[in-house]
Design a protein around this nucleic acid. Structure first.
Length: 605
RNA sequence: GGGGACGUAGCUCAAUCGGUUAGAGUACCGGCCUGUCACGCCGGGGGUUGCGGGUUCAAGUCCCGUCGUCCUCGCCA
C-alpha cells in the first residue's frame, strides 16, 4: 500500500508508448509552461528527463504554480497523435493527462532560467549553484564523474587493491605548495595542516605491509588558482609494493582501459607509448605534449653555427640551443598579423623575440631572410626539414627557454590550424630530472618530491645535479598532465643521502621527516605509486576546459565559496579558543567592521 | 605578487562627443488562445548604473580608490 499518495510511480525520463493507458504519478520541477486556453502544457523535469503533462482547462483551474515549483502529477499516460509526436525527446511519444496536481513546494522567481544553453555570469551561477546544478549539462557532468570513479574503484578492487582512508588533519610539510593550516585548541600555538596529498601516509602503508593501496583522496594546496586548479581537488591515489615502473604502468593501463570502456564505451590501446623526459622535451618542448598532431620541434644548430646571425651564435657559444618549428604551408596560412600575434605569445612565455622565415630557395621573407641568402637558404630548409612555402619559427637561448617558447607555440598553432585529431592520446613520460635549481633560493630542490628514487645508485654524484634523472613518471593525455608518481626510496641510507644533496641537515631531517626515516629503518619494501587528478581527467573526458564544471560546489579564482560565503570572519571568542590573534591587514579589517557596527548601533539611553 | 578584460532591470545586453524621463530581449504578473514543446499575440510591474570619492552647469559615460568575477605570468615538490 502506498501511504503517501503523491509519491512517484515513475521518473520524468522513463515513460514510453508501452506505458499508454497506465495511471502514473510523477514528481518533478516545473520546466516550461505553454498555456493554450483550452489546454495547458507543462514540462515536468527531474534528473532522468522531461515529460510533457497536459492539463485540461478544468484541472488547470484547480491549481496555481510557476517556474521551478515542485509538483506531484497524478494522471494517465496517453499516446500522442502522430502529428504531435516530439522526436527530439525520449518521452516524446506520450503525454501524461493530469487528473490531480499537488504543489509539493513553491519557488521564488529563479535567479536565472534552467536552460541547457546558458550565458549567465559564473558569479551568479555559483551563488545559486543548486539552481545551476539542475541544468542537464551539469547533471550529466556529475553523473559521468560518478560513473568514472565507480569504474576506477572496481578496476582497482579487481587487482587486489584495498581502499584505505588517511588523515585530513595532518602535519605541515616543509617543501612544496603552501599548506592550509588549522589551529589546535588543545595545543596552544600549534597547527595541523590539510594534506597536499596522502604521500607520506601511503608510503607508511607500504611499510605496514598493505601491499596494494588506493584511495579517492581530497588534496589541499593554498596556491593561486586557474581554470584547471581548485584549492581542494580530488586524486585517485595508489601505491604498491615490490614493483618497478612497468608493473605500475600495467596496473594503470588496466584500470584506464576498464574505466574508459565502462564509463564511456571507449576502447583504449595499450600499452601507452613511453617517452623519456629528454626525448619529450626535444620533440615537443614541454613535459606534457599533445601528441594528437605532429609539428615537432627541430634543431637548427647545424645551420645556425655557420649562419651570420649574432643572436644564434651567442646562444650556441654559451651552451644554449637554436630550435625551430616548421609550420607546413605556413607562409600562406599565416598572415603578417598572425605572426605578430605569435611574437606576442612568445614574449609572454619569456622570449626576447621570435625569429621567423617564410621558407624559399629564393631567400624567402622575414627577419631570418637576410641570413638565409644564397646557399644558406637551401641549407636551412634541409636542416629544418622545411619545404618551399613553409613557415619556420625559431627560438634561441637556454635550452629550457627555447623549448618552452616553441612548445607553447606548437600547442597554439596545432589548435589554431585545426591539426588536432580527435582521440585519447595517453602516454607515459619517464626519467624526469631528479633536481631543479632555484635561482632565487640559490639551491637545488627535488623536481618531484624528496622521496623519489634516483635512476642508478648514488655511487657517483655528478658535478651538475641537473643531469641526474629520477624514477618519476607522468601520465599525459592530449596535452594535459593527468597524474604523476614515482618509484620511492625504500632505503634509509639513500634517503639520507638525497636529503644531504638537497642541503637538508641531519638535524633538519630528523625534525621534519624523522618519522618517515624511522619507518624506512624498520623494513620498508621496495615500493612506488601514482596519483591521477580526477577533476582533470573527468573534465577532459567530457571535453571541458574548466574543472569547475565537474565539481559540484567549486570555488572562484580567489578561493571563495560564493554559495556559503566561505571563508568568513569568526567571532573573537572562537579565535581565542584556538589561541589565534589577528594581525596586520586582518586586524585593520576587523577594526573597520567593528567601528561600522558601533556606528550603526542606536545610541544608548 | 604582476598584467589584462569585465561590472547598467532577476538574467543577457544597449545607451552617439559628457546632455531631456536609462532602453531592448527574456524571465515574472494579468488578459486572449485546444496541440504546443524555448508556443504565439496584447498589456503591466520591475533600476542605489558594484561601492566610495573627485572633476563638471551636467557623470552610466571622464579621473582616483576600493570590492567582486574571469583570463593570464609568477606560483602550484
Amino acid at each position: 500500500m502506498n501511504t503517501t499518495p503523491w509519491l512517484r510511480s515513475h521518473t520524468c525520463g522513463e515513460l514510453r508508448a508501452e506505458h499508454v493507458g497506465q495511471r502514473v504519478v510523477l514528481n518533478g520541477w516545473v520546466d516550461a509552461r505553454r498555456n493554450h486556453g483550452g489546454i495547458f502544457f507543462v514540462d515536468l523535469r527531474d534528473r532522468y528527463g522531461k515529460t510533457q503533462v497536459t492539463l485540461s482547462a478544468e484541472i488547470a483551474e484547480t491549481v496555481r504554480f510557476s517556474a521551478e515549483w515542485v509538483l506531484a502529477v497524478e494522471g494517465t499516460v496517453v499516446r500522442r497523435e502522430p502529428m504531435n509526436v516530439n522526436p527530439d525527446r525520449p518521452t516524446g511519444e506520450i503525454d501524461v493527462r493530469a487528473e490531480k496536481v499537488t504543489v509539493l513546494s513553491e519557488s521564488r522567481i529563479p535567479p536565472f532560467e534552467v536552460l541547457d544553453q546558458l550565458d549567465t555570469a559564473v558569479e551568479t551561477r555559483l551563488r545559486h549553484r543548486y539552481i545551476d546544478l539542475r541544468r542537464a549539462p551539469l547533471q550529466r557532468n556529475l553523473l559521468h564523474r560518478s560513473r568514472f570513479i565507480s569504474a576506477m574503484r572496481r578496476a582497482f578492487e579487481a587487482q587486489d587493491f584495498a581502499e584505505v582512508e588517511t588523515p585530513i588533519l595532518t602535519r605541515a610539510t616543509p617543501e612544496g605548495a603552501r599548506d592550509y593550516l588549522v589551529p589546535s585548541r588543545v595545543h596552544p600555538g600549534e597547527f595541523y595542516a590539510l594534506p597536499q596529498s596522502p604521500q607520506i601516509f601511503k608510503q607508511l602503508l607500504m611499510v605496514a605491509g598493505m601491499d596494494r593501496y588506493f584511495q579517492v583522496a581530497r588534496c589541499f594546496r593554498d596556491e593561486d588558482l586557474r581554470a584547471d586548479r581548485q584549492p581542494e581537488f580530488t586524486q585517485l591515489d595508489m601505491e604498491m609494493s615490490f614493483v618497478d615502473e612497468e608493473r605500475i604502468f600495467a596496473v594503470w593501463e588496466a584500470v584506464l582501459v576498464r574505466t574508459f570502456r565502462e564509463a564511456m564505451g571507449v576502447e583504449l590501446t595499450i600499452p601507452f607509448p613511453r617517452l623519456t623526459w629528454d626525448e619529450c622535451m626535444d620533440r615537443y618542448g614541454v613535459d606534457k605534449p599533445d601528441t594528437r598532431f605532429g609539428l615537432e620541434l627541430v634543431d637548427i644548430a647545424a645551420w645556425a653555427k655557420t649562419a651570420e646571425f649574432p643572436v644564434f651564435q651567442e646562444a650556441l657559444a654559451s651552451g644554449g640551443r637554436t630550435l625551430g618549428l616548421v609550420v607546413p604551408g605556413g607562409g600562406e596560412l599565416l598572415s603578417r598579423k598572425d605572426i605578430t600575434a605569435l611574437e606576442e605569445l612568445a614574449k609572454n612565455f619569456g622570449a626576447k623575440g621570435l625569429a621567423w622565415w617564410k621558407a624559399s630557395a629564393e631567400g624567402g621573407a622575414g627577419p631570418l631572410a637576410r641570413f638565409a641568402a644564397g646557399t644558406k637558404a637551401a641549407e636551412l630548409m634541409q636542416v629544418a626539414g622545411a619545404k618551399e612555402g613553409d613557415l619556420l619559427l625559431c627560438a634561441a637561448g637556454k635550452a629550457s627557454q627555447a623549448r618552452r617558447v616553441l612548445g607553447e607555440l606548437r600547442v597554439h598553432l596545432g589548435r589554431k590550424l585545426g591539426l588536432v585529431k580527435p582521440g585519447w592520446n595517453l602516454l607515459w613520460v619517464t626519467h624526469f630530472p631528479m633536481f631543479e635549481y632555484d635561482e632565487e633560493a640559490g639551491r637545488w630542490f627535488s623536481a618531484h618530491h624528496p622521496f623519489t628514487a634516483p635512476v642508478g645508485d648514488l655511487s657517483e654524484i655528478p658535478a651538475d645535479l641537473g643531469v641526474m634523472r629520477s624514477r618519476a613518471y607522468d601520465l599525459v593525455m592530449n596535452g594535459w598532465e593527468l597524474g604523476s608518481g614515482s618509484i620511492r626510496i625504500h632505503r634509509q641510507d639513500v634517503q639520507a643521502r638525497v636529503f644531504q644533496l638537497l642541503g637538508i641537515s641531519a638535524e633538519e631531517q630528523s625534525a621534519k621527516f624523522g618519522f618517515l626515516l624511522e619507518a624506512l629503518a624498520h623494513g620498508a619494501p621496495p615500493h612506488g605509486g601514482f596519483a591521477v587528478g580526477l577533476d582533470r581527467i573527468v573534465a577532459l573526458t567530457l571535453g571541458l576546459d574548466s574543472i569547475r564544471d565537474v565539481v559540484a560546489f567549486p570555488k572562484t579564482a580567489s578561493a571563495s565559496d560564493l554559495l556559503c560565503e566561505a571563508p568568513s570572519k569568526v567571532a573573537p571568542s572562537q579565535l581565542a579558543e584556538v589561541h589565534v590573534a589577528l594581525a596586520g591587514r586582518a586586524l585593520l579589517e576587523a577594526g573597520k567592521s567593528d567601528a561600522g557596527t558601533a556606528a550603526a548601533r542606536p545610541p544608548s539611553p
